[in-house]
Amino acid sequence: MHKAVTLVVTGLTAAVLGMLSLAGLAAATTATEEEAVSKAEELVEKAKQANEPDPYTPAIYGSR
């Protein structure tokens, strides 16, 4: 009984922590800095082709 409780609690703790960290890592890898930069470059390129001003000029401090 004692061992079983230990195993169950350990398993649950590992599952919760594992789930949280996997979800966090998945979120981080789907919103990487590189992706943001390449997106920004795409926008700049599009603006150039459309003869519009560079949307990232001057560089913005950030967005909400």
């Binding site: 979120a27 919103a31 909400r64």
Partner: peptide, 9 residues
């Protein structure tokens, strides 16, 4: 305030 300074998680 900044979305860019917030970890994705």
């Amino acid at each position: 305030w900044s979305a860019q300074a917030t970890p994705a998680s």
